[in-house]
Nucleic acid binder design. Structure first.
Lengths: 209, 209
DNA sequence: AGAAAAGTGAGACTTAGTATCATGTTGTCC
DNA sequence: GGACAACATGATACTAAGTCTCACTTTTCT
């Protein structure tokens, strides 16, 4: 009678609906931001475009900016985390990250304008910057989990996964900052490798205490 | 006639007044947040306490949260940057940072409750977290400048200073996160060293390109 | 001294964010 | 399979953040 139903993801219809609503809102927010160049986009615009009530918006996102940033980043974050996971097993944690971002360099020209649009919108206002940074924390965690298995001697509470995630996001942020400062005309993948080059992680957890 | 006036800091009275106003606002914001446990503190409260007009508030701070965060961090940031600068010349960049944060460990108990208060307020709401992260960017820059002279082969555009600043702030943030998760009862300086231990920077700029 | 430039205060106004309640939908237990 | 609990939504009203404009004062430069 029971079982047989849910296979792996024990997510019910309720949770699925909820995530779909959240996605609709984020998508609408990002689309409006891109279309309008961000000028004058309001929460009422977003909820109208997403076809949800105003209260629902704030149940899913703590601020307008977070919704826009989430929509802009969209699948991008998941793509990167997946890429890191797919890197050659022989690569260590930082090596896998460098490889993943190098893959982004292949065919970068096709994505240049999209990246530029996203980068500029995320820097449009101080509030956008602040909430984008807030969003990055989630990515830090994701990246940390993605590389954890590559860390020798990993134990519960090991600071390395989170730190590697944070350092990676810092490299990405600073690389894009420099890229934007040069009017998005430079070689972003190369800049990214340049900043990632500063990251070095001890092969083993320093035997402290 | 001219010259002879300003010695080193070419800051005029106007700039000084401006900074004083900004400081008054930040101080009032932090004091109200600490006193009231943050509950229900409004911009009108802050401007009344600071004795400035509402418009002036938003000329100095892009959001209420940024004002509170700035006031809370207050002198702390400057103290750390100064400490890093005062570290023994024999120490390299990361060594100087580790030493500076180790100094914080001396007499930590006297500061424990103050740190706890500040840490909890900065994590009170998602908005506080977001704007605190925004504020951290300034510290990143400050730390980067403070250690730049310790980096061999430094050249314009070198990614190391900013990256070291960002990695340091990441370590601080994650250490405090873990400390707060343990109800602020643990050994924060030790946690800090633990996270800082993950940072390793190549002695020389990787000869890329 | 006088004019340009920049900071401030006051108030009106738009919009973000919160709280409450009624309604529909999903999950669970018999 | 039906009833009930739990949760997601929508609508509305309300508080407070953030913007804008204008009149006024202070600083700076010539």
């Amino acid at each position: 009678m029971l079982s047989v139903i849910a296979v792996h993801p024990p997510v019910g219809r309720r949770e699925r609906n909820r995530q779909e609503t959240r996605q609709r809102i984020a998508d609408a927010a990002a689309r409006l931001a891109v279309d309008g160049g961000h000028v004058g986009i309001t929460v009422d615009d977003i909820v109208a475009a997403a076809g949800v009530g105003r209260a629902t918006f704030f149940r899913h996102f703590e601020s307008k900016e977070l919704a826009v940033a989430t929509g802009l980043s969209g699948a991008g974050a998941f793509v990167m985390v997946d890429l890191i996971r797919q890197a050659d097993d022989a690569l260590d944690a930082v090596g896998a990250i460098r490889w993943a971002y190098a893959q982004l360099g292949v065919d970068f020209e096709a994505l240049r304008s999209m990246f530029a649009e996203q980068a500029l919108l995320c820097r449009w206002s101080p509030a956008m910057v602040a909430w984008t940074l807030h969003l990055y924390v989630d990515w830090e965690i994701g990246i940390g989990e993605a590389v954890a298995s590559r860390l020798p001697g990993l134990r519960p509470g090991d600071p390395r996964p989170r730190m590697i995630g944070a350092m990676t996001m810092a490299a990405a942020r600073l690389a894009v900052d420099e890229w934007v400062a040069g009017d998005c005309t430079g070689d972003l993948p190369a800049l990214m490798q340049r900043y990632l080059g500063v990251i070095e992680v001890p092969a083993h957890l320093p035997t402290h205490t």
